[in-house]
Write a protein that binds this DNA or RNA. Structure first.
Lengths: 351, 351
DNA sequence: GATCCAGTCTGGATCGATCCAGAGATTAGT
DNA sequence: ACTAATCTCTGGATCGATCCAGACTGGATC
């Protein structure tokens, strides 16, 4: 059995408080005594105050929870999520806080339990799906949190971008190039929908909030160009991964007039699409492809996309949690986006 | 103030134990009473047992610590480290364990404190540098741990590859192709060495254990081909990053006979090297480049490399921690590696 | 009808620390 | 020399739960 603080106190012949102070507040005792305590502690093999006991008493843990509303191990396959995490880690490092990555099981009850059992001082919720249940559980615990949710509640801390306007900007880039027959590509467009083309009667039906907002932004641009929502082809992918993007594009109906452009809701989907559309044996007429996020792989692939900084998002989120601005008005941070035009998009080829 | 378990007990008119059992062991009380407890708890806004208090009493946290012996936010820039983390996350998900990512400050004292303050049941230590101090601190706490250290102690849980043999295999591939004038590229080859070519008198002087083992493996192959250590040019990079790799290669002395091959200790370094050596305005005579790890970016770049699975490493490490095999002999897992030959390596061009 | 047993529920002890009001001893101030 | 201030150190209360030995019921067993 490991010795405890009490054992050290008895060995040295002082009170427990004094030993505690030797570790936590050196100014509360004489340097000599402190040294004597530390020495015998070391010699007894006492590893210092137990973190759990300390947390209980102090009411403070020194860790922030990071929640991905998707499987945790999947999260790492999404480069943008990794950048976000990098930003969070950077801010946490500065605050000497640890990060608790909590895996959320699929079923809501399990997810609830996981959130309730996490020993943290607050949460950064990276929203990649439905999250209201999660947020309510956090609220129930009375812990502070920051979301990147598509539509934050009044007063909630939030960091994000104007998804819809950003999406609109890429789409306008394409309508400007003359594209009229396009396919939109997102993941989780409709619940349980198989990979492939869909008729979505209303954008509002899309359950995944980010996908919904981006599709809506695309639609805005096309509406301005005289193309209404029901005329747009929507492709859906089961995951936000390259292979899923590739698979979705392969399901484009052969024979009928193919789209002249594919607008993806993320770079990984777009890169998957590019692979297929630029791959060997394809129709030589190039199809324009655009992405979203501007991950590292986008530039070498020449992908036209919308840039947003995952690091900034993560950093801001963690900062909002770790030292929140006193006035509630500055607790929602809108980050900028930029349209980055590369070679993957071009004018409609003449037929 | 949030209500506690005691408050709920008083409200319902039962003992604290009973409320505790309502959450933790439903079989210990009648379903009706349990329901009544849960209902009033919900209505009072009691979020369930406090995780910290529970951990203290139970002596079990439900989280494993993950340590990177480099800055945490840097770790995410290393694709192989991310794969490792993915594997760890996968195993943790299965065990309903959380992952505590602990940022380690540069100075040993701070790192020690960080490890001592982490509320976890054990550690996965991803060794990317010197780690003995870290491991000693963990041992001091009496917590189990798994390392990927270059040279594990007898009895320690470990998962890794035969670094030296694997490195030797790529190098033999190159000597087989006729390469004799080569440059080795690693990071942290010598402490505080500037980027660029070095004379390293002895491989054993290299402080970074992985770099050392891989360089030694390279040297083995060249020794077999009649080239002794001091004749080998070693390039060093300050970081294990693409830009650092590129910078190191740019420092190759111009004018003198350039190497016909660059053997890097990692794919990111190799990719940086490739960028420079295949870039515009370069000597048209192609220099062979090899990497190590086979990260996702290696294949599209045509990089010859040694494949090892980061996911497997992470998964095995976490498994070794979460349900260790009873017999100590199987607590060290040697994972396989494969030489993957692609287009970045070829025969020595005739001059 | 005494015994045994399973099913429920209780309450004091405990996990390992930190907090805080205050006791004693020293030093400083006038 | 006497009060005030400062420095050290103490010990009981507390953080919020879980553990465990045992009490109490009501029904089955022989």
């Amino acid at each position: 059995m490991k010795p405890t603080l009490r054992a050290v106190a008895e060995a040295v012949g002082v009170s427990r408080s004094t030993v505690s102070n030797a570790y936590g507040r050196p100014d509360q005792l004489s340097p000599q005594l402190r040294q004597r305590i530390l020495d015998t502690a070391r010699q007894m093999g006492y590893p210092g105050p137990d973190p759990t006991a300390r947390s209980l008493r102090r009411g403070f843990v020194g860790a922030i929870g990071v929640l991905f509303t998707s499987r945790l191990s999947y999260a790492f396959t999404d480069p943008f999520a990794v950048r976000f995490l990098t930003g969070v880690a950077e801010a946490a490092e500065r605050h000497e806080s640890s990060l608790l990555l909590v895996p959320l099981p699929g079923e809501p009850a399990g997810a609830r339990k996981a959130v309730e059992n996490a020993a943290v001082d607050g949460f950064c919720v990276y929203c990649a799906g439905d999250e209201e249940g999660i947020l309510d559980t956090i609220r129930g615990r009375g812990l502070p949190f920051v979301t990147t949710s598509a539509r934050p509640r009044e007063g909630d801390r939030w960091v994000g971008i104007d998804e819809r306007a950003a999406a609109r900007s890429v789409a306008e880039h394409l309508t400007g190039l003359g594209h009229r027959r396009v396919a939109l590509l997102g993941h989780d467009v409709l619940p349980d929908a198989p990979t492939g083309p869909l008729r979505v009667t209303d954008v509002a039906d899309v359950p995944h909030p980010t996908t919904r907002d981006r599709l809506a932004g695309f639609a805005d641009a096309f509406a301005a160009a005289g193309i209404r929502w029901p005329e747009l082809t929507v492709l859906t992918a089961p995951d936000n991964t390259r292979v899923a993007g590739a698979a979705a594009v392969r399901k484009l109906p052969a024979g009928v007039e193919p789209p002249t452009a594919v607008l993806a809701c993320s770079d990984v989907l777009a890169l998957g699409a590019l692979e297929v559309l630029r791959g060997a044996g394809q129709d030589p007429r190039p199809v324009s492809v655009t992405g979203f996020d501007d991950i590292a792989e986008a530039a070498p692939a020449g992908l036209t996309t919308v840039r947003q900084s995952g690091e900034d998002k993560g950093r801001s989120a963690a900062a909002l949690l770790l030292d929140p601005p006193p006035d509630a008005t500055t607790r929602q941070i809108l980050l900028p986006t930029t349209l980055v035009v590369r070679t993957s998009s071009g004018p409609v080829p003449r037929s």
